[in-house]
Nucleic acid binder design. Sequence first.
DNA 1: TCGTCCTACTTTGCACACAATCTGCGGGGA
DNA 2: TCCCCGCAGATTGTGTGCAAAGTAGGACGA
Lengths: 210, 210
Amino acid sequence: MTRASERAVDSVRELILRGEFAAGARLGEVELAERLGVSRTPVREALARLASEGLVEIVPNRGARVSSWTVAELEEVFDLRAALEPRLTALAVPNATPADLDDLDDLARRMVRADLDDLVGLNRAFHGRLVALADHPAMAGALAGAIHAPIVLRNFHAYDDASLRRSLAHHVEIVAAARAGDPAWAQAVMTAHIHNARAVMVRIAREDSA
Amino acid sequence: MTRASERAVDSVRELILRGEFAAGARLGEVELAERLGVSRTPVREALARLASEGLVEIVPNRGARVSSWTVAELEEVFDLRAALEPRLTALAVPNATPADLDDLDDLARRMVRADLDDLVGLNRAFHGRLVALADHPAMAGALAGAIHAPIVLRNFHAYDDASLRRSLAHHVEIVAAARAGDPAWAQAVMTAHIHNARAVMVRIAREDSA
DNA sequence: TCGTCCTACTTTGCACACAATCTGCGGGGA
DNA sequence: TCCCCGCAGATTGTGTGCAAAGTAGGACGA
């Protein structure tokens, strides 16, 4: 699990998250091996790992596919996020240095005027930074397996205007709460943030499946 | 990831949970391959999977070891359990049929008079049954990665009498709450249950490291 | 005597080869 | 015409070989 395997995990994950492979797309071992320039062995390990993260599904003797999500599964993922991410946010508040807060503020403000295509990356950076500040690997790890799903499903293109504005305002407000040194406030906003995202994603998923 | 690989995952996991391998013990690929009667390839996949579950740690070019836990990491795991398991318990309550409740009741009562060595199995069965009833794969999966740690660290032998009695009483009370159809009650008891276990485990870990 | 370097061994990491399983398609029968 | 069976192609699952990385032990020099 060193060079080639590790690289393969990251590469495939990135390919999926960037949308190169659509949900449900087959991930042939030989295909990926050629694309990454390694043999099938590290690709196998990468797929097994991504499967345990929930990003791909492996059916015995039938190969790996990019996971697709039912509405029910999607709601479950948001239940999990709602259970963990607000707590992580609260934990992050007392750990944040002024420099951290400036960085988060910068990210939050850049998102307000960013192009829709850049939002995904900035959003990941913001939430990732917050989770890192919480300094709680166990919860962060538990969350990591779930956090991908909504990103895979859709990017921000699907947000309606009101929801998007709310979402961006939440980021800014979380930073404000952290500056005020108020974990409960930050936690509450993050809770609202996730519920807002849930509403958007579930609506989209319903429209898709309809 | 079918026959041999899957078996290897379960076998190694079971070996670790049963305490056949101590925390920190080396897990050589050839050694495990011979023990399980398969080649190194499925063993590799099994170790990679268990690593993503957190049960083993893989150091590049130096092989796999059974994870060992610092006090801080142990507390983190209990934070995670405290965040998820009470919610799962609350979700389980409305889903439980009378037959389910009878089974849980049976497990909880058997634990009261069981031998210490049998408690581990019964406890896993009780919590497993509860989690299954919650019917929430995402949260259950997130929890699964963490639930192993305390079991690995110590079995019930280390419980002091008062804590053990509390723990067993909690199980009975959770069933009672479920019978009453009161999710909030069950959730609260489970929360207490986990905090009680945390106190025991942390004390033990401190004594060990001292 | 202690420190450093070198050598040999052990173990993992990767690639490749073979076997088992599954899917799709075509032919034959009802 | 429809269904079932069987065959061929493709793909995964597993075993094994080889090379690289790391570790341990000893020998040599200061």
